[in-house]
């Protein structure tokens, strides 16, 4: 079954959503991610949605759920790269994604996560080696 890859970058996880997700794929992503946070003890999650042309209430709800679940598992979530047209539409729709942190780019999002981790008094690897952990969990 197709899935959205979750990259592990040191203490953080990076998800780049590029395809127009159907509902089952979105649900699967949510499950995969929760499992990864626990397995790697990740401190933060970056979700890059710059490739998404729309965010409807279903995907909006999924983002909200990810943020809430991550927070319980002590990981901060930052949604990055939302397109202007998507942001305007979400506001008009009445979906303001409360409780979700946002950043303009992956780089800026990463800075936010690092700062958070530093505030929490944790050592953060500066040169996190990128590796794709492609295998879906069983």
């Amino acid at each position: 079954m197709e899935h959205i890859p979750i990259l592990r970058m040191g203490e953080f996880l990076l998800i780049t959503v590029q395809v127009d997700m159907h509902d089952r794929l979105a649900m699967k992503l949510q499950d995969d991610l929760t499992e990864r946070i626990v397995r790697f003890g990740s401190r933060g999650v970056l979700i890059d949605i710059s490739g998404l042309e729309i965010v409807d209430s279903f995907i909006g709800r999924m983002l909200g759920n990810i943020a809430s679940v991550s927070r319980i598992l002590d990981a901060e979530t930052v949604v990055v790269g939302m397109q202007p047209a998507v942001a305007i539409t979400l506001v008009e729709l009445g979906l303001e994604l409360p409780g979700i942190r946002t950043a303009l780019s992956v780089e800026r999002g990463m800075q936010i996560l690092r700062r958070e981790a530093e505030l929490a008094g944790l050592e953060v690897l500066k040169d996190a080696n990128m590796e794709e952990d492609g295998n879906p969990p069983e």
Partner: peptide
């Protein structure tokens, strides 16, 4: 326009669901 396209597609997605 791009914004109107996005609004329409989002609305279509909502109603289709």
């Amino acid at each position: 326009g791009l914004v109107d396209q996005t609004k329409l597609v989002t609305a279509a997605s909502e109603i289709a669901r």
